[in-house]
Design a protein around this nucleic acid. Structure first.
Lengths: 149, 149
DNA sequence: GTTCCTGCAAAGGTTTTGCACCATA
DNA sequence: TATGGTGCAAAACCTTTGCAGGAAC
């Protein structure tokens, strides 16, 4: 696991403890797997990886762990339009990325863009809104699938 | 119904006829209701409105009508994160909007923004992608719920 | 008359909930 | 030991599919 994931996991343990949550095996396994994989996975994928890995966890426990992490602001749900909810890690410094879903090969490309973030901040200001989160999902063809044709 | 909705409905009839689809009661009712409401509704809402209105339609027919309209590029699915798929009308001129979901009052605010569109187009160019569609969903507090506090 | 559309019912997939048991603090 | 976490099973929910009957062309 990279240092970024490790730091996120440690913060998650601290934050959940501060909120009065006890430490349980299934939830810790979910936190570790999220930190290892870097997010962007569905509950089913998470459960599957845990089943093949060190610490299997029941489906309900995976969903409940994700719910608690979401309440604590440690993960953020993303919907790519395929009917399954994905979960992204929320980092301390606000760093995050968005997604391009290729409608030909089905792959998901992650990206970040400063100008896009600035445009979103400007829109929020114009609307008089205070943003807690935002999602951008692009649909089309990735560069490998003839995006430039 | 406004002129924009009427024009969209007429185009929908033309486009579906051109694709060899026959005209059926349920599908026409869905088209009329979408044109009347201007989109941004779920399949269940659509079915409910039709039940209370002139022409009830079965759940399956509503979903099938939306599927056909989607294939023809006449509607676009949007996921606001509440587990239900919403459908937006796709207009001839490409005009569209995005959404701010207030996490306090639950309301959805629609907006459009030229700078945001330009930023998205620039990102697509940088990624070498050709976009067919894109979604932006903002989460936070709308101006009425203390966005500016 | 053939083919597609429709509606009911059933199935499918994801997510949530009830409940008994177990682990943590 | 009191409380919260866990896992199984069942339910709830949205969406899709199978099939028989009816409508459009």
């Amino acid at each position: 696991m990279n240092a970024r994931g490790r730091a996120w996991a440690e913060r998650a343990y601290r934050e959940l403890a501060a909120r009065g949550h006890r430490s349980g095996g299934a939830r810790s396994a979910v936190i570790e797997e999220l930190a290892r994989g870097g997010g962007c996975c569905t509950a089913a994928e998470l459960a599957h990886r845990l089943r093949d890995g060190s610490r299997p966890a029941g489906t309900a426990s995976v969903y409940r762990a994700l719910g608690v992490l979401h309440e604590a602001g440690l993960v953020h749900p993303v919907d790519l339009g395929d009917g399954e909810r994905r979960w992204e890690l929320v980092y301390d410094d606000g760093a995050h990325h968005h997604h391009l879903v290729c409608e030909r090969c089905g792959r998901t490309v992650s990206f970040d863009d400063t100008a896009l973030e600035q445009a979103i901040a400007a829109v929020a200001g114009r609307l008089g809104a205070r943003l807690a989160a935002h999602d951008v999902v692009l649909h089309g063809r990735c560069s490998a699938c003839g995006g430039r044709d």
